[in-house]
Design a protein around this nucleic acid. Structure first.
Lengths: 245, 245
DNA sequence: CGAGCTTTTGACGGATCTCAACGCAGGTGG
DNA sequence: CCACCTGCGTTGAGATCCGTCAAAAGCTCG
């Protein structure tokens, strides 16, 4: 049915930007989905350490992987958008060392680990594609290490916005440098290793410099070339070229 | 020959800490190695963007993945030890978005991508193990995001030393909380997102507090429980339990 | 034994955090 | 319909952690 078709649609867009996916493979992926679920904003979706038997594919909304320190500080390690698996790695890790939470209202497709295991037994190329998609996450996370470790605050924020723009554009969720980002400045702080107060000041500077506006959960990029320069943003880490994997 | 046996030995130790590896799979892994190479300390081993046709397995020495910013700042994203693949993900990514460099004199085993591809076609379980090992890297990198994003300098350093201790112990390269770490304080700064000056001060504090000593390229942990507490170190992210994958 | 790293230490400066106050919008219940 | 509450955004003042700059001492190796 049309509804089910939509569940994997954006995943396919993402994969096909990087390699071919045959119709048979597409069918195998669709058949792997066992159902879907919704979560309200702020809800915890996977708690660190809990045993897992299925993985979640984001259909709609924004999801964060994060970890907390004992003093209450939170660090978001990656923001997931529609088309991303949030915890495909849970298939082999069997549990996660971090939490997964809904930043907005979220709908996910559920993919039982049994089905993924079957794919690894019978579909080498599709297996490589799934593996590949976990490697993209890894590259995104490495880029965050660089951001948080060495970039100044303004640059970190700019980089995050650049990254989200490109990732959302891939699945048609951003156009003309504008996209929905209905999260709080506190969330942005957790994603950049800053306090919400400082995020607020940096957002003001980005706005005053006519680079980007973040208001009402909507991002509008005014000057893409200059924003990229401020962020030292280079799409290389997103591996956007189409090649056989 | 005995020499070749040694090339994959530590990799097997690492894998077998997490799952079973059959004798046949062990043979397949050995056969996948096409040779070995040495690099002097400081040498660049893979440059970002260069096309790759083989992956490197560290046999001896320390290797870093890192990226530089335009102003010359460097961020190390992960330190690899003997038994780690440094760029297994290059098999599917086809190139890397970061550099790989030798922190010490290094010997690596070379594994052609053709051989890995054959494994993915014929050895589902071994494929999952290789995939799994890239997921461990990913978890280590996520932990670094937390460190660099939210932990204070002292804690960051403590955490890195805890992590290296446990990882080295897995393959018999650390014992009694003591291990070789023949790298400079500048390297430690690049790995923690600090300056070498501040690393020096924090090392002094760790020494004065009787937690760890780093001297002459040797780390000696004096008080493991307290060091872990300072670092908020929890081995969870290393997935040390033995389970079928 | 001198050149060039690396480590160590001090003084100072600055980016970011903390604390605090206020405004604003949306929701809720009387 | 309005008082109230709560969460979020905004701004200012002061504190702090870490960086910068600089110099000197220790090591290694040709």
């Amino acid at each position: 049915m049309a509804d089910e078709a939509d569940l994997v649609q954006r995943l396919l867009l993402k994969l096909r930007a990087r390699d071919e996916v045959s119709e048979r493979e597409e069918r195998v992926l669709r058949d792997a989905v066992s159902g879907s679920e919704e979560y309200p904003a702020g809800r915890n979706m996977v708690r660190a350490g809990a045993p897992l038997s299925q993985s979640m594919l984001v259909v709609e909304g924004l999801v964060a992987r994060f970890k907390d320190l004992s003093d209450g500080q939170r660090q978001i390690q990656e923001i997931h958008v529609a088309g991303d698996f949030t915890d495909l790695h849970g298939f082999l890790l069997k549990r996660l060392e971090h939490n997964v939470g809904a930043l907005t209202r979220v709908r996910v497709a559920l993919v039982p680990h049994d089905a993924i295991r079957r794919i690894t037994e019978e579909e080498p190329h599709l297996t490589r594609l799934l593996w590949f998609s976990t490697l993209i996450d890894s590259a995104i996370q490495r880029e965050k290490i660089l951001s948080v470790g060495r970039r100044p605050a303004l640059s970190r924020l700019a980089h995050l916005l650049c990254e989200l723009r490109v990732r959302l554009e891939l699945t048609g969720l951003a156009a003309d440098g504008s996209f929905a980002l209905p999260i709080t400045q506190l969330d942005l702080g957790d994603a950049t290793g800053l306090t919400s107060v400082h995020v607020n000041r940096m957002l003001k500077q980005l706005r005053d410099d006519r680079l980007v506006t973040f208001r009402g959960g909507q991002v509008t990029i005014h000057d893409w070339p200059r924003l990229q320069k401020v962020a030292e943003f280079d799409t290389g880490f997103l591996y956007l070229d189409r090649r056989p994997r």
